[in-house]
Design a protein around this nucleic acid. Structure first.
Lengths: 192, 192
DNA sequence: CGCCGAGTTGAACTGAATCAAGAAACGTGG
DNA sequence: CCACGTTTCTTGATTCAGTTCAACTCGGCG
């Protein structure tokens, strides 16, 4: 899960009483600091924490036949959790690690559930986030299905040029669904 | 958007007062009948209708470089809308058509919004649907990224063998992200 | 009976993976 | 701050899965 802009964007669209609910939400969040290379979540475990990143960058990945496949990169202003596990509270297939020193604010699954109980209007927050996340994912799925390695790389450079500075190319490669060698060639050829 | 089982599954997990909200929801839905080949939505228009299918099958597709690409097939017990448009009320890139004579129950975007207003707990309905849809889509995106044409075809035959009986192979092919020729070969080779 | 779309089959071609080797960058300890 | 080993990235040669183009088959349906 990986939603842009989110909290600020969301809050600006809120009514006063909704904003109050958001205050409660934010007050429940706990600050965390992680150093580069730290593991936030391991595959096989149940993930019950949702992180909002204020500094740093986090990689979500898993193993497919021994090979490490990157699924998303989550940066400042975005949220990350092992989504498969968090939603259903079942063991996750994903690993989550920091790629830089990172600061997050986190909330647990239980706290979130109790938010829904106490403040039904808070469901709206998650609904809107999920919808946006869904649309982003549709775009990603289609980009993999329909675009060549070259096109996918170019789309990424347009959408998030900074990411290439922050993340190893081998991770970018698996994220794009291509081999590191192909990514290298795509980058040196440039135009075609 | 394409969620399995949904209304029945969902209702069985509801508390009495939640079930009441669902009654309101259902009472707002309007029955529709379409014949085979009818167009439910056209790309470029804003889609403000959500359909729940009780009979028939519907194909969502769009054009990429003149080519018709199938995105999903929605069957009985599932919901369909031009998701990109419905969520944000912007013009859609998708077309939606029936592949058989089809019966649906539909609700408009405005009615749904007013449901949220009047019954905040209804947000939960959409939240849970979106989450499930999200997880399904993640699986689909990964299947395209990581599996060969053969594997994708086999996954589909396991997950939904009936679909192959109801849908032209050329549509199955674009849905799987392969050419009709490759699909044909995959089907005749069988094992490998 | 002949047409038409759907599906199959064959041959040539191509984008990307794989395998292998070398170059560059990185970081850790002395 | 340099030296060394490790990891990351590039480059080349080969191979392969899947596309494209083209011809052909089959099953309706006017």
């Amino acid at each position: 899960m990986n939603v842009s802009g989110l909290i600020d964007d969301f809050r600006s669209s809120l009514s006063p009483e909704e904003n109050e609910v958001m205050e409660v939400f934010i007050s429940k969040m706990k600050k965390n600091k992680y150093s580069k290379g730290e593991q936030l979540h391991r595959a096989g475990k149940v993930c019950n924490v949702l992180h909002y990143i204020t500094k740093g960058i986090i990689r979500t990945y898993y193993y497919k036949d021994e090979k490490d496949i990157s699924v998303y990169f989550t940066q400042e202003g975005e949220m990350v959790t092992a989504i498969d596990s968090f939603i259903q509270q079942k063991p996750s297939k994903y690993n989550i690690e920091t790629l830089e020193d990172t600061t997050t604010y986190s909330i647990t699954f239980d706290e979130l559930e109790s938010m829904y109980e106490d403040h039904p209007s808070f469901e709206r927050f998650t609904r809107i986030i999920m919808m946006q996340a869904y649309i982003d994912l549709v775009e990603r799925a289609e980009s993999i299905q329909l675009h060549s390695a070259m096109e996918r790389y170019q789309l990424l450079t347009e959408r998030d040029p900074l990411l290439l500075e922050r993340v190893n190319l081998k991770h970018i490669a698996t994220f794009l669904g291509i081999s590191p060698e192909t990514l290298s060639r795509v980058r040196s050829n440039g135009s075609t």
